[in-house]
Design a protein around this nucleic acid. Structure first.
Lengths: 328, 328
DNA sequence: ATGAAAGCGCTAACAG
DNA sequence: CTGTTAGCGCTTTCAT
């Protein structure tokens, strides 16, 4: 930087002002250009670390997540990273594969890097408990929530997702709609189910317990559950699967019986796992989880909190859109 | 840090020595403990940025990749990150979704953070051309290579993978083995094919052009290609699909004809895309791409180069193991 | 508009 | 083993 100053024949302060776009300082355009030219010629590259030290502001947010465990994490990261870049912030990604000790250690390292705040992203929607240490900086939860509500959180609107799936099937004329649900203890199952119930109730369709089964969140689980439904005396003409992997198994069960999708049995999934939903034949109509958007919103919320513009501690809910393919 | 020194009744240098484990300086254990205790009590957390400034060493590696585009990237990241952590290095991940301009900008930002080196990871094995700017620091390629061989690279041993798949089928007694290959222009296709050829030749099985088809790298492509093979006058009893998505389509084609896997037709895939290979029914035996290991090795190689222990510019090849499931 | 000077939190060299 | 001193590369205040 000194070199740049000398080359441009100005003071170091001037260089600093130019490089930081401090137009308010009253710098002549001519000076400005000279500095820029000198910097370019010298291949000058500001040292972000030194700047952070001087400004007492790192421009970093820490993102902690189990990155590999689920394919979803990357979409959260993408959303967060894109948004962060727009604000000239950096994302320091720490991946902890669900090991609590590693998690604390990871956050510790992030704090040593003086991240301005933390985004904690889960790969499946659930309640989490963060290490105490996370309280040292503003923290936002993404795709998860704090049981005690001490942290603001961004979660998908699962109930609405359940509604959309059911409504779509209803709109296609179905009245007997089976549901293959996830483990009934998790938030996603509870909420998706309540969406399903709401819509049926609104349409005046009585619940039929036989039509609600739950299974292992795998293709095999979906296959077994779908088999149960299809072998009913009065089988459903449509099946809402609470995730795409189970839908994958359901496809097998349906095809095995010589039935066609969607002609004989319509299917709607949940998650929009590209690899499955797009490549299943026929393509799977499914409800998408808004990962990218949650990442974006997480960064925005964090930035607002850091800027003191938000003290909210509530939960923000993001819409789950229906993606139409060919299974309805 | 000054506070810690005062609290412990020692000099700041002493604190620095203790915190950096400079045992060589001859510090009494008693002093050491006092410092550590004071630090803990005060909740002192070293400022990594300040340290980096003083040491002129950031402890960061930059990892640039198209993170979202492919599900594979995360495994490379995991391998790299785990390995980096072991050496107390940080990974700064920059995701560029194949946009050359964004790529240069991303690298520029990494350089401003004074990363000690760069790891450039591709999501599919191919030749890449890096922005000139990457030459400013040691750079290692992962899952890709430089056409001009100017950067050291780590790539999967595709040929060996092709061999393993073919050998497995041979071992199961098959003599008519079909191949559904990828777009013949890409390295993966060329090498996997050559592995396949080698093994057949070694077994004294003459090539049959009819048995080698290529298709779109999708389930539909696999479906179409498998249909072609199965409708041959003398259809294969086993099919080697050059990726799992195509195997997914092949499954459909096989089942549609009332044939059973592996009883009537055996299938081997490539890529080990969990979501597909594991959930397909029956589970798909497939060749795995060693992403995690490539990430690990990338970091190791980079560290060696930075430490001046390696000046190699060649290409390192990593084994692709066969994962047995139930389709053979 | 500019230059001098202090300081960010830490490391490292050196003389005690 | 301690204390002093001089930076690391940059920002920012303040007087000019």
């Amino acid at each position: 930087m000194k070199d740049v100053a000398e080359k441009a024949g100005v003071s170091r302060s001037a260089v600093s002002f130019v490089l930081n776009d401090r137009t308010s300082m009253g710098l002549s355009d001519e000076t400005r250009d000279r500095v820029l030219a000198a910097a370019a010629e010298l291949g000058y590259r500001p040292n972000a670390g030194a700047r952070a030290l001087a400004k007492k502001q790192s421009d970093w947010y820490g993102l902690v997540t189990e990155i590999v465990t689920a394919p979803f994490a990357v979409d959260i990261i993408k959303g967060a990273q894109d948004r962060a870049r727009e604000s000239d912030k950096y994302l320091l990604i720490a991946s902890t594969e669900s090991d609590p000790a590693a998690e604390t250690a990871a956050i510790e390292r992030l704090l040593e890097q003086r991240v301005e705040g933390l985004i904690y992203a889960a790969t499946w929607h659930r309640a989490v408990v963060l290490p105490e240490i996370a309280r040292e900086v503003p923290t936002v939860l993404v795709n998860c929530f704090d049981a005690e509500g001490r942290y603001p959180a961004i979660v998908p609107d699962e109930r609405m997702g359940g509604r959309r799936a059911t409504e779509r099937l209803l709109a296609a004329g179905h009245r007997r709609i089976g549901l293959i649900n996830l483990d009934p203890d998790i938030p996603a199952a509870v909420l998706r189910l309540s969406g399903y119930h709401e819509v049926l109730a609104e349409a005046g369709i009585p619940f039929d317990d036989e039509l609600e089964v739950s299974g292992h969140a795998t293709a095999d689980g979906g296959y077994a559950a779908a088999s149960t439904l299809l072998d009913l005396t009065e089988p459903p003409t449509a099946i809402f699967c609470a995730n795409d992997r189970m839908a994958m198994g359901a496809y097998d069960a349906i095809k095995e019986r010589g039935l066609r999708i969607p002609h004989d049995v319509a299917v709607v999934g949940f998650d929009n796992q590209e690899l499955i939903a797009r490549y299943l034949r026929p393509g799977l109509t499914t409800v998408a989880l808004p990962f990218e958007q949650m990442g974006t919103r997480g960064v925005e919320l964090l930035a607002a909190i850091i800027a003191g513009q938000s003290t909210a501690t509530g939960t923000v809910t993001i819409d789950c859109p229906l993606l139409e393919r060919a299974s309805v």
